[in-house]
Amino acid sequence: MEPTTPTIEFFAGLSEELSNVSLRREVRTGKRIVVMFFEKLQALEGFNSFTKPSLNSLRLTDEEGEINVTPSSTRFIFGGDEGDELKKVECKFEIEQDDSWERFMRFMYRYADANGMEYGER
């Protein structure tokens, strides 16, 4: 079986390019918080958001299958001279179960490997 290229989608069939990801842990509750950063969204190019079915979640797909996550927040950060230029999109969600976290990390390693990204700790 051919390994599936890992993808991230807000809309069916539109792969988004992750520019960065931040993995945090809430000290008080132990919840793991993931913040994904996108510098541009295919979903916003042209009229893609009108022509493709919305997933109402974030779909992460790799050779193990799909992970569907519902963001707790999505922020659109604008800049530029007129303040109307999309600088980045910040998508945040929480993962509580250890097995879900391990599955997510396997996806992230595959995604990073396929897209020439490196994992670094601060």
Rank of each mutant, 00 (worst) to 15 (best):
Glu2Pro: 05
Thr5Gly: 02
Pro6Ala: 02
Thr7Asp: 00
Ile8Lys: 02
Ile8Arg: 02
Phe10Lys: 05
Phe10Ser: 02
Ala12Met: 02
Ala12Asn: 08
Ser15Phe: 01
Leu18His: 04
Leu18Gln: 06
Ser22Ala: 10
Leu23Met: 09
Arg24Asn: 12
Val27Phe: 06
Thr29Gln: 03
Lys31Phe: 12
Val34Arg: 00
Val34Gln: 05
Phe38His: 14
Gln42Pro: 01
Leu44Cys: 00
Glu45Arg: 09
Glu45Lys: 09
Gly46Ile: 01
Gly46Arg: 11
Gly46Tyr: 02
Asn48Met: 05
Ser49Gly: 04
Phe50Met: 09
Phe50His: 07
Phe50Cys: 03
Thr51Ser: 14
Ser54Asn: 10
Leu55Tyr: 05
Asn56Ala: 09
Ser57Phe: 04
Gly65Asn: 02
Glu66Gly: 00
Val69Asp: 02
Val69Lys: 13
Ser72Trp: 00
Ser72Thr: 14
Ser72Lys: 12
Ile77Thr: 09
Phe78Lys: 07
Gly79Glu: 03
Asp81Thr: 10
Gly83Glu: 06
Asp84Leu: 14
Asp84Ser: 12
Lys88Asn: 11
Lys88Val: 01
Val89Gly: 05
Val89Ile: 15
Cys91Ile: 05
Lys92Asp: 02
Ile95Phe: 10
Glu96Phe: 09
Gln97Leu: 12
Asp98Gln: 15
Asp98Val: 11
Glu102Thr: 14
Arg103Phe: 01
Phe104Cys: 06
Arg106Gln: 14
Met108Tyr: 06
Met108Arg: 00
Tyr111Pro: 09
Tyr111Leu: 10
Ala112Asp: 08
Asp113Ile: 01
Ala114Val: 05
Ala114Tyr: 04
Asn115Leu: 04
Met117Lys: 13
Met117Phe: 13
Glu118Lys: 12
Tyr119Pro: 00
Tyr119Ile: 15
Glu121Asp: 13
